Computed example of a mutant assay.
Amino acid sequence: MTDVDAKLAELEARIEALEGRRHPEDPARGFIEYHGNVDFGGELNWTIRYSAASVLQLPASIRVEVLAALGHPVRHALVQALLDGPRTGIELAEAVGLTSTGQLYHHVRALSSANIIEQHSRGTYHIPPPKIVPVLVLMTAAADIGNLLQSG
C-alpha cells in the first residue's frame, strides 16, 4: 500500500465515521423527529426532535394519559371532529352520536385533562394549534403500528 493509498483509506474511514454518526445528543441511540406543515384553520408548522434516549426519560404517566384519552373510540371521534375547527358541546355530541351531555363531558374532561383539547370560549372546544400536528402524528403512528400504512 502506497502512502497515498494509506491516506485515502484513512480519509475514507474518517468520512464514514462522520457520516455514520448519529445525532450528537446520543450517538448510541439516535433521535426521533417529527414535523408537519398543515392547514387546519390556518397554516401550522411544527418540528420537534428528541434524542431517542431522552424520549425514554419522558414521564410515563403523561404519555399514558394522552394515549388513553386518544385510545377511546368516542374521544378519537371528538378529536377528529375538532380538527375541522372549534365546536360547541352540542355540535360535538351530534357529531359523534352522544345522547347525553353527561357522556360528552366525561369524554371532554378526559381529553382536557390530557391537554389535547381546551375550552375555546364558553361551551366551545378546540384543539390548540401547537397540538394539532402532534395529534396527527399520533394518529398516523397508531395506523402505522397497526399496519394500515406502509412506509417506503
Rank of each mutant, 00 (worst) to 15 (best):
D3Q: 15
A6R: 12
K7R: 15
K7L: 15
L8G: 04
E10G: 10
E10P: 10
E10S: 14
A13T: 06
A13V: 08
A13C: 06
I15F: 14
E16Q: 10
A17T: 08
E19N: 13
G20D: 10
R22Y: 08
H23D: 15
D26G: 08
G30R: 03
F31C: 10
F31W: 09
F31P: 00
I32Q: 11
N37K: 07
N37C: 09
F40A: 09
G41E: 01
G42R: 00
G42F: 00
L44T: 04
N45R: 09
W46S: 12
T47I: 07
T47A: 14
I48K: 12
R49C: 04
A52S: 07
A52E: 11
S54I: 06
S54G: 02
L56F: 11
Q57N: 15
P59Q: 11
S61C: 02
I62N: 11
R63L: 14
L67H: 09
L67D: 13
A68P: 03
L70I: 05
G71R: 05
V74I: 15
R75P: 04
A77H: 06
V79S: 07
A81Y: 02
A81K: 01
L83N: 05
D84A: 13
D84C: 05
R87V: 03
T88S: 13
T88C: 05
E91D: 15
A93Y: 03
V96Q: 02
V96A: 12
L98H: 04
T99F: 11
S100C: 05
T101E: 12
T101D: 11
A110Q: 15
L111R: 05
S112M: 14
S113P: 09
N115L: 13
N115T: 10
I117N: 00
H120V: 04
S121D: 11
S121H: 06
P128H: 06
P128Q: 03
P128I: 00
P129T: 01
P129Y: 00
V133I: 12
V135Y: 02
V137W: 08
V137I: 14
V137T: 10
T140Y: 08
A141D: 04
